[in-house]
């Protein structure tokens, strides 16, 4: 019990599942720099996003906080941005949360330890992201507390490729 979710289909007509979509893509080549929107991102299996600060081997001898094998690409829910505005009156843009991919309709917190397709790329979710105290300094917005437990998802890239805004996100069986 509670070691895994039940993957068997539900009885009767109920269909478990979800399908989501990529709404925004962002990257930054170095620590602290503002994220820049992109129409596409190139994901390299086992390494990261081309041109992004977390690409393994990108910053010679330095690591942005620490290198993390499980953080080759990061995702964030558009729904969280909507909730921040609705519940806290804080307007946070998709370029401000500092994750690479903003998705809609994807239950990120349910995906830890699972694989899913992001467009043509295959990701494996390693763990939930934690908010960072410094994000309040950078954005000037009090978002640390509201982002606890919904600060996105860290993933490894199992199969690389090009991800585009509008791509479909779906479970990999």
């Amino acid at each position: 019990m509670l070691d895994t979710v039940n993957a068997a289909p539900a009885q009767g007509a109920a269909q478990l599942g979800w399908t989501g979509v990529v709404r925004f893509l962002h990257l930054a080549p170095r620590a602290f720099l503002p994220m820049r929107a992109a129409e596409t991102l190139t994901l390299v299996a086992g390494r990261g996003i081309e041109g992004d600060r977390y690409m393994i081997g990108n910053e010679e001898g330095f690591y942005s906080h620490k290198p993390e094998e499980g953080r080759q690409v990061t995702l964030f829910e558009l729904e969280t941005l909507v909730a921040l505005k609705r519940d806290f009156g804080i307007e946070l843009g998709p370029e401000e949360h500092r994750r690479n991919v903003t998705v809609e309709g994807v239950p990120l917190n349910h995906l830890v330890g699972r694989r899913f397709w992001l467009g043509e790329t295959l990701l494996e979710a390693t763990r939930l992201s934690v908010p960072c105290r410094h994000i309040e300094e950078i954005t000037g917005k009090a978002i640390f507390d509201p982002l606890i437990n919904r600060s996105g998802l860290n993933c490894k890239i199992r199969q690389g490729g090009i991800v585009k805004v509008g791509d479909t996100v779906r479970n990999a069986a």
């Binding site: 170095r30 602290f32 910053e59 001898g61 330095f62 690591y63 942005s64 906080h65 290198p67």
Partner: peptide, 11 residues
Amino acid sequence: MKARPITTVKT
């Protein structure tokens, strides 16, 4: 060289 955390903006 030991990897160090980044604490400044590189310019």
